[in-house]
């Protein structure tokens, strides 16, 4: 197991995850747009928000890969199947807590049930399991995170040989 494998896997996994969600958006399956959600926490400018959001998402993807790596080390084994399971947990955590609860709590422009829209523009909140962005969103998010986990797991395991 190697931390370099985790970093490379995190980068590639995030690339795949972002591309899958973006394709889902283009195919009218979901309105989930992680770079837009992240970037608008820092700027009101749409274009700048997307650039900032992509950068942040890649940083987050690599940081999560390091968390995966730590878990692999603790368990003493790594592989694509175990990574895929981590991805399932990751997706559930994102859908129920990370994006659904924590992001609206810290995002200065995201609506919560207690928000009024009189003063500032508000971004649509994701809702439980991100369902506000379209019914297929949880499934797509789950599949994308499973792919991410499998890639990270495979890279971490591969780097050991």
């Amino acid at each position: 197991m190697s931390v370099w494998g985790a970093l490379a896997g995190g980068f590639l996994g995030t690339l795949v995850l972002t591309t899958a969600l973006s394709a889902g958006s283009q195919l009218r399956i979901t309105r989930m747009d992680i770079p837009f959600l992240l970037g608008t926490a820092f700027t009101e400018n749409r274009t700048r928000a997307r650039v900032v959001g992509y950068a942040l998402h890649f940083v987050a993807g690599i940081l999560f890969a390091l968390v995966y790596y730590a878990a692999f080390v603790v368990l003493g084994r790594a592989g694509w199947a175990l990574g895929l399971l981590f991805g399932v947990a990751h997706a559930l955590f994102s859908g129920t807590t990370l994006v659904n609860v924590l992001l609206p709590a810290v995002h200065p422009r995201m609506g919560t049930p207690s928000s009024a829209a009189d003063s500032a523009p508000l971004l649509e909140s994701p809702g439980f399991m991100l369902l506000n962005y379209g019914r297929p969103t949880p499934v797509l998010t789950l599949l994308a995170h499973m792919a991410y986990g499998a890639i990270v797991g495979a890279f971490v395991a591969g780097a050991a040989h």
């Binding site: 283009q26 309105r31 989930m32 747009d33 959600l37 609506g111 829209a117 523009p121 508000l122 971004l123």
Partner: peptide, 14 residues
């Protein structure tokens, strides 16, 4: 209106 992204709820003044 939003397409492929979350909605933005505008403020009245805006």
């Amino acid at each position: 209106a939003a397409y492929g992204e979350p909605l933005v709820f505008p403020g009245r003044d805006d």
